[in-house]
C-alpha cells in the first residue's frame, strides 16, 4: 500500500511540474475547515478577520472602490498609474496613493552584476503637469561583499521622469479617446 501511494504522489508531482499555464496555487480558502462549520462564510485565508498589525490592503481597495474608483486618489490618477507602471519592473516596498509616494525595494538588473538600485517617486499634485512627478534613483555597488552607496548618473532621474510622463500622456489619450 505505502509504496504504491508514494509512487502515485511522486508521479503526480512530476505531472505538476508540466502544468504551465494550467497551473495555479490553490488558495487557503479552497480547503475545507471543519471548525469553519461554525464560522461558515467568513472569508478564509489571507483576507480573513480584522487587521490588527500591518496594512489592510483589502480595506484600502474597498474604500477606494467605494469612493468611485480612481477619485479616491489624492494625487493625479494618470501620473500615479504611470509611475506605478514605469517602476513595476522593480519590487515595490510601499505605495501610498494619498501621500503620492512610491518606494521600491532594492533591485539588481540581470545585466548588471554587483549593482543594485532603488527608486523613490513622488506624485506631487492633482494636476497632470510635466513637473508633477519627481523620481529619485539610489544605487549601490558590491565592494568586497559589502553594498556601498555609489553615485547615479544625473540623467537617470530625469530619464525615468520622462518615461512616467510619456506613459501618463498615453493613458490620458487612451481614456480621452473612449
Amino acid at each position: 500500500m505505502k509504496p504504491a501511494l508514494l509512487a502515485f504522489v511522486a508521479a503526480l508531482s512530476l505531472l505538476a511540474a508540466c502544468g504551465g499555464d494550467n497551473q495555479r496555487l490553490v488558495g487557503n480558502d479552497e480547503y475545507g475547515d471543519w471548525r469553519q462549520g461554525r464560522a461558515r462564510n467568513r472569508p478564509q485565508g489571507a483576507t480573513a478577520g480584522i487587521v490588527v498589525f500591518g496594512v489592510d490592503k483589502d480595506r484600502e481597495a474597498r474604500e477606494a472602490a467605494a469612493n468611485g474608483g480612481g477619485s479616491g486618489l489624492s494625487v493625479n490618477a494618470y501620473l500615479w498609474r504611470a509611475t506605478l507602471d514605469t517602476l513595476s519592473f522593480m519590487p515595490l516596498a510601499s505605495a501610498d496613493p494619498f501621500g503620492g509616494t512610491i518606494i521600491t525595494d532594492w533591485y539588481s538588473p540581470p545585466s548588471a552584476n554587483g549593482e543594485r538600485f532603488r527608486a523613490q517617486a513622488y506624485v506631487l499634485g492633482r494636476q497632470l503637469r510635466s513637473d508633477g512627478v519627481r523620481v529619485q534613483v539610489f544605487r549601490q555597488t558590491l565592494d568586497h561583499g559589502q553594498w556601498v552607496d555609489s553615485p547615479v548618473s544625473g540623467s537617470t532621474n530625469s530619464d525615468l521622469e520622462d518615461k512616467v510622463l510619456a506613459r501618463a500622456r498615453e493613458l490620458r489619450s487612451q481614456s480621452a479617446s473612449r
Binding site: G49, V52, D56, S88, F89, P109, F117, S153, K163
Partner: peptide
C-alpha cells in the same frame, strides 16, 4: 548600470512580485 535600469524599465519584465510586509489579523 544606470542605462540598464532605464532599459529594464523599457522592457518591463512580466513577473515582478511585490514583497508584502506581514499582516496580523
Amino acid at each position: 548600470g544606470t542605462t540598464a535600469v532605464v532599459g529594464a524599465a523599457l522592457l518591463a519584465p512580466a513577473v515582478a512580485e511585490a514583497q508584502e510586509a506581514p499582516t496580523v489579523r
